[in-house]
Amino acid sequence: MLRGKAWVFKDCVNTDIIIPFRFKSRTNDPYEMAKYAMYGLDQDFPKKISKGDFIVAGRNFGGGSSREQAPVALKYAGIAAVVAESFARIFYRNCFAIGLPILEIPDVTKRVAQGDELLIDLDNFTVQNLKTKETMSAKRITGYLQHLLKEEGFINYYKKHKSFPWTTPKPP
């Protein structure tokens, strides 16, 4: 169970907003990237949030560039999960690859307001709004992605199994 506060954003928050190129292309240090998380919309975002908070966003979160630095910046800034109405494809893959939990709920921005406390259950794919007491079901995550979610990304997965999810005889 994850518990934290929601930071709500609009539709189409793209990766140029999440971390501009000129910052992300000049470092390989995730904590340095984290200083610029959500820079395009709120330059103080990394200072405002507490470790374990969530991003809640509209449709097509993470569109545009393939930059893995985008989910890395969010993760190392302290964001514990992103819940959005939908995700852009490369960002979606990148989150599983690096172990940032993400969930899709089609109308989540109508059911969560800025600052609401949320309880996220990654085993059952539910998000509970502790303010409104409403529990929302997210799209289930299955197959390889579920293994990556459980083991927090490819690097951890590989270190543990010495193989990739599709080559492991019996995934966990």
Binding site: R67, E68, R93, I155
Partner: peptide, 10 residues
Amino acid sequence: TGVGSTEMAI
């Protein structure tokens, strides 16, 4: 098609 860095490493 495009992917991120860790998937490229894989």
